[in-house]
């Protein structure tokens, strides 16, 4: 290699030729020959097969695309968007004036007058409140009480009233009023149960979960209200959870687990 003639080998040329030939080989086989041959076997014309291989049109060059004639009812008509979520963070005067008609049951400050029947709204996630208002209105979550109440609300008004109640501080609970839920229930909350395909409750309802946008806060709601909702999901009476996220985890719960979980969340501060 110390021979000066060989030192001046045309490195640039050979390196470029090597790389371009690898590229040309890949284009020939990956972009053209393979898709065209696969398409021919599947009855897809050459141009379409190449488009599919390049990802310009959907589908595999080696298989027909399935067809659909879907027309199905969604579980909820709520769809999140960046703008909607942004507007839910701002409490407005409009929300305050609308909230008067809610105060009869949910309290002026979002603390329910009869906690066994109605949920607290104070400190609840605005997205969760909005989702339920919207579902009451559209009938995704039919309710003799709520559906007529929200019927007249516009989109903006539902946003405003949700943001309004979300801004209140959560109800304090007197310490040591309720018995502890026990280790098995705490295990469901923190670990879930892989045997029954149940994720930890914390996976969606925890403070650091990254779970679904509309997952509500559960702590300091009443035992009765929480248990009633879990049972409604379990029986399928309530079905406004997108893609059965709650129905699928409530279904395998036993009656005593439902009561235990309701007790846990009613007596905890952190979720």
């Amino acid at each position: 290699m110390n021979d000066p003639d060989r030192l001046e080998q045309p490195w640039r040329l050979w390196a470029s030729v090597a790389i371009l030939s690898v590229f040309a080989f890949s284009v020939l086989f990956g972009f053209v020959l393979m898709p065209v041959m696969q398409g021919r076997a599947a009855g897809i014309d050459a141009f379409e097969a190449i488009c599919r291989a390049l990802g310009i049109t959907p589908g595999s060059p080696a298989a027909r695309q399935p067809t659909t004639n879907a027309k199905a009812q969604p579980a909820t008509r709520v769809a999140w968007s960046a703008d909607l979520l942004n507007s839910l963070t701002k409490a407005t005067a409009a929300g305050e004036s609308l909230a008067g008609s809610c105060a009869g049951c949910h309290g002026r400050d979002g603390r329910a007058v009869e906690v066994k029947l109605y949920p607290d709204l104070a400190g609840q996630s605005a997205a969760a409140i909005y989702k339920q208002l919207h579902d009451f209105k559209t009938g995704s979550r039919p309710s003799a009480l709520m559906t007529p109440m929200v019927q007249a609300l516009t989109e903006e008004q539902m946003v405003a009233v949700s943001a309004h109640f979300a801004a209140f501080p959560v109800r304090p609970i007197p310490a040591a009023q309720l018995p502890a839920a026990g280790a098995a229930i705490e295990g469901l909350v923190a670990r879930g149960d892989s045997g029954r395909g149940m994720p930890a409750c914390n996976a969606c309802h925890g403070d650091q979960s990254g779970g679904p946008t509309e997952a509500p806060r559960l702590s300091r709601q009443s035992r009765e209200y929480l248990a009633a909702q879990l049972r409604a999901f379990k029986t399928g009476e309530r079905r406004n959870d997108i893609y059965s996220r709650m129905r699928s985890v409530a279904a395998p719960l036993t009656e005593s687990e439902i009561d235990g979980l309701a007790l846990f969340y009613a007596s905890t501060r952190t979720y």
Binding site: S194, P199, A200, A203, C204, G206, S209, G210, G211
Partner: peptide
């Protein structure tokens, strides 16, 4: 996909 990933099946 999040904290409930292990039980998703």
């Amino acid at each position: 996909c999040g904290l409930g990933h292990s039980e998703m099946s």
